[in-house]
Nucleic acid binder design. Structure first.
Lengths: 193, 193
DNA sequence: ACTATAACGCACAGAACTTGGCATTAAGCC
DNA sequence: GGCTTAATGCCAAGTTCTGTGCGTTATAGT
């Protein structure tokens, strides 16, 4: 979990300065995350400023500036790890069923307004450098494509399953709860079957 | 072209105060548009401020504040009309060929970094209110679905053609020039053939 | 429990952004 | 051409954001 946190700019290789991730820091982080998610749901991904977050989180703004530097980086970082990359993927042996479950998980996740708003913030920061809040999702897609019995590529999972969901989450959020996971997965599998 | 321009807030119905769209105003608008596109390509959709645009466009910043109010609104407005809605769609009688041409047009358009960056800015502002910089694209998709001989719905055009392109334009821009318009269109048509 | 120091809070200064009043220019319409 | 007034330019606060030095707190490791 490197994220794009700045903090102590130790670039000399000698024994990294062992970060402090527990206790107070964890409380502060949780508090900030909550504030960001509330604000982003209220005001959209832009329009969220660091002083604003600091006030709601009851944290000093300098803590936020030191940790992320700017609002864009902060939002993108929080958006990236909103869906735990270590949560474990469905793996029952039935690839199509697993893929359908995963797809449904995506749909449910982005149907929640907060997550969709965070995604929009990530979209705004995408394209430049290493900021891609969907990289975990893309890795998961590639993982499914690599499983035995797969008849599709990772790119096809992106195009046929991930893209429609993300597109709707961003631009047509009210249509997302209506879409059917199975439809997407069936087409993905049919194509090459 | 209602856009979300503010200007004279005349809400009483009596004869609207006839806007001035030509001459100097047009020059100013063109200059602003150019500046926004340059800046957004350089610095991303966020990180573009109104004073910044004003300076590069050699326009007074108060003119921009009065016209749009804030950077988000401005960017979304400019992004919406980047692809002229009145440009005319291909219509040779061969639906599949027309659709392929349109798809290729989309791919080419969003392969240009400026347009992709504007799209990201639009994505950031999406979801709230009436701001959707892709509404024209969605209308065009529905138009194709409504043509005689069509075997698909507008939603299917969105899911199978538009979504993959937009997804890649936003999150995987370097992969966009590689995608093939025909592949998307073929799958859209095959499905229900 | 003890030590070193990562991370935080506080305060202040400098920069940047917003906003409105007022004067000037010129687009739209006879 | 002459009139009305939309739109711009200029300026001057007022507000908010950004960034840094310094002292304090309490986490990670022994």
């Amino acid at each position: 979990m490197p994220s794009s946190v700045r903090y102590s700019g130790c670039m000399v290789a000698e024994s990294r300065p062992r970060r402090r991730t527990g206790g107070r820091s964890a409380v502060v982080l949780t508090s900030i995350r909550k504030a960001v998610e509330e604000l982003i749901a209220e005001r959209g991904s832009e329009g969220v400023t660091i002083p604003m977050v600091a006030e709601r989180a009851r944290v000093n703004h300098s803590s936020i500036y030191r940790r992320w530097g700017d609002a864009r980086t902060m939002i993108n970082d929080l958006a990236t790890y909103r869906l735990d990359p270590d949560r474990g993927l469905p793996d029952t042996g039935d690839l199509r069923a697993d893929l359908t479950a995963w797809t449904q998980e995506l749909i449910s996740h982005y149907s929640i307004p907060v997550n969709a708003a965070l995604l929009r913030g990530g979209a705004a920061a995408a394209g430049e450098s290493e900021s891609d809040c969907l990289r975990d999702r893309q890795a998961e897609a590639a993982g499914f494509a690599a499983r035995p019995g797969s008849t599709f590529t990772g790119d096809e999972v992106i195009d046929r399953v991930v893209a429609p969901i993300i597109y709707r989450a961003i631009f047509l959020p009210w249509t997302l709860p209506e879409v059917d996971a199975r439809t997407y997965v069936d087409e993905l599998c049919h194509r090459s079957a």
